[in-house]
Design a protein around this nucleic acid. Structure first.
Length: 565
RNA sequence: CGGGGCGUAGCGCAGCCUGGUAGCGCGCCUGCUUUGGGAGCAGGAUGUCGGAGGUUCGAAUCCUCUCGCCCCGACCA
């Protein structure tokens, strides 16, 4: 491919709206352009990258027996009404009416549609198992699209769905997908983790996410080097360090102390000269069944999602509600002498604590769990790096990550309402057991850029680079330079290696800068200087290491490099 | 949806506070020179100052409304 014939609008300066590294580089290197918030146009280079990623996905999906199909992006509402998601999902679903006034929506995922298909076509256990997938556009009216192509309102997703007769079959398909996903992300050159995740609204018991390491990520995972425990912080357990007592705590008696104008844990902690871990943070929440207290240790933060899982939907009480319900300001709440229902972090099961006295300007010392208050105990704190692994006690590490794939065991969650049933060997009708499995190819691309770049631009992993090699003839008017370029080009193409030739009549500096920015892993630089010595230069984008070699040897050298990378 | 920021030439920005003929750099076009890391010189083109309304003799600048984009948070099947 000739540079002059492919549209690569590189930018010298960074567009103001870009913040994330991948966003900046994909814009600057001429890969994408933004149409509106969360809507992107993929230019030729980006589309080639997507093509390579999707090819890897197709190969690996094929290897586990998945069959590619294609489903509409426009859906009738009634199927979504049958599963209830038409009503459960709010503004995130794009809804519209057709000319006949029928309710429609743009598909944000395809469980409903594929289950409808299964309900129509699968009759017998003999038809099972099936694994169907597609690489197709999804629509989600995100509250806040962000970070370039990382979170968009329209995006391509590889989604597959497994149909089995029983749980054992699901387990097998789930494992196959997990293995295929590991191969896909490894082949795409990503650093990633497979972690336990919250099944959330997808339903089902088991779910894992595939997370690419990146500071631009929206999620955080907890990783244990000791035993391999890995989980999204939304559900990751962790054991906090022991409480730091001063040693002068009294046995059982509680005592109120004046703490004028001190509200936050930090303020009271400094005032009373006690470590934050000696405090109970009490937060008033409004749940479906009325107000309740959430309790965490003073040195910890409450994880609202974890609490939601055990307490149901809730919201933080407003200032005036705190005053009305408890009679004191937020800084003076305590768990003792309160009759409200309480959810407490498990770390509060033991120890002696200071908490708000439930009267203005005072805190109570000497509060003991079980003695002075009872609660429902759960891990509801935000994991920190000072915490220990819940499985093996070793230290844990927190990492920012981008979600690039997920796998869910759905069970009968969709097959039941949509009546996707089959007759088993005994002639008994049973719901199909399902799993659903997603990958975001654009997020793979963005993650690859996030993980592989330097001050000069992108450094693509070989497997998903838009081209394998960029050839840079420095003087396009020079006969020998162009003859050599064409000869090398022909040989490389014969080997199935994809090449971009910068045939533009530009100064060498411009070509070098653009080549580094675009990030094709190898550059072959052909200039008069080198040809005088009978050599061309083979440069690795990542290391900037340059080898001077004879034109006749370039092809085999490139093949050597491609083989190892 | 809550909080913050920004909309001025293709891109990056200044001008706004304190109203008075809209500027700079890069890019673009022409010519000459140059040709191994975003060239030099000379000449040139380019603006509904996001939009609407208002104040004023006069608005990019002040006021009101509105649209869009970005960031933080909430949300995220």
């Amino acid at each position: 491919m000739l540079f002059s014939k492919i549209f690569i609008p590189t930018l010298r300066e960074t567009p103001a709206e870009a913040e994330a590294v991948s966003h900046i580089l994909l814009l600057r290197a001429g890969y994408v352009r933004q149409l509106a918030a969360g809507l992107y146009i993929y230019l030729p280079l980006a589309w080639r990258v997507m093509g390579r990623i999707n090819r890897i996905i197709r190969e690996e999906m094929g290897s586990i027996g998945a069959q590619e199909i294609s489903m509409p992006g426009l859906h009738p509402a009634d199927i979504w009404q049958e599963t209830g998601r038409w009503y459960d999902i709010g503004e995130e679903m794009f809804r519209l009416k057709d000319r006949g006034g029928r309710d429609m929506c743009l598909g944000m995922t395809h469980e409903e549609i594929i289950t409808w298909l299964a309900s129509m076509e699968i009759r017998s256990y003999r038809n099972l198992p099936q694994v169907w997938y597609q690489i197709q556009t999804k629509f989600r009216d995100e509250a806040r699209p962000r970070s370039g192509i990382l979170r968009t309102r329209e995006f391509i997703m590889k989604d597959s769905y497994s149909f089995d007769a029983d749980e054992a079959g699901l387990e097998a398909n789930y494992q196959k997908h997990a293995e295929a996903y590991n191969r896909i992300f490894r082949r795409c050159g990503l650093k990633f983790h497979q972690v336990e995740s919250d099944p959330g609204m997808m339903g089902g018991a088991t779910a894992h996410e595939f997370m690419a390491t990146s500071p631009a990520g929206e999620d955080t995972v907890v990783l244990c080097a000791g035993c391999g425990y890995a989980a999204n912080t939304e559900l990751a357990m962790s054991v906090p360090p022991p409480q730091k007592l001063k040693g002068d705590e009294k046995d059982t008696a509680t005592e109120d102390v004046a703490t004028p104008d001190k509200r936050t844990v930090a303020e009271v902690s400094g005032f009373l000269k006690a470590d934050p871990s000696c405090f109970i943070k009490s937060l008033l929440m409004i749940g479906h069944e009325g107000p309740f207290l959430a309790l965490v240790r003073g040195d910890q933060e409450l994880h609202e999602k974890k609490l939601q899982k055990v307490a149901g939907n809730f919201r933080v009480a407003h200032k005036d509600e705190v005053k009305n319900i408890l009679g004191v300001e937020a800084g003076s709440i305590g768990p003792h002498n309160s009759t409200l229902k309480k959810f407490a972090d498990a770390s509060l099961k033991e120890g002696v604590y200071i908490a708000g006295a439930n009267r203005e300007g005072f805190h109570t010392k000497g509060i003991r769990p079980h003695v002075h208050f009872e609660a429902e105990w759960h891990d509801i704190h935000v994991a920190r790096e000072v915490d220990k692994c819940p499985k093996c006690g070793a230290g844990i590490v927190l990492e920012k990550v981008i979600e690039i794939g997920n796998i869910f065991k759905l069970g009968a969650k969709y097959s039941q309402p949509l009546k996707a049933v089959f007759l088993d060997e005994d002639g008994k009708e049973r719901p199909v057991i399902m799993g659903s499995y997603g990958i975001g190819p654009a997020r793979i691309a963005a993650s690859a850029v996030e993980q592989n770049n330097d001050k000069d631009g992108i450094i693509w992993p070989q497997s998903i680079a838009p081209f394998d090699v960029e050839i840079i003839p420095l003087d396009t008017a020079d006969r020998e330079t162009m003859d050599t370029t064409e000869a090398i080009c022909r040989e490389l193409e014969k080997q199935g290696i994809e090449i971009l030739v910068d045939d533009r009549d530009e100064r060498p500096g411009v070509k070098f800068k653009d080549a580094d920015l675009i990030g094709i892993p190898f550059q072959i630089i052909i200039g008069k200087k080198g040809l005088k010595d009978g050599v061309v230069e083979l440069k690795q984008r990542r290391t900037k290491v340059t080898e001077r070699i004879a034109p006749s040897e370039v092809v085999s050298k490139v093949k050597d490099h491609l083989a190892v990378s």
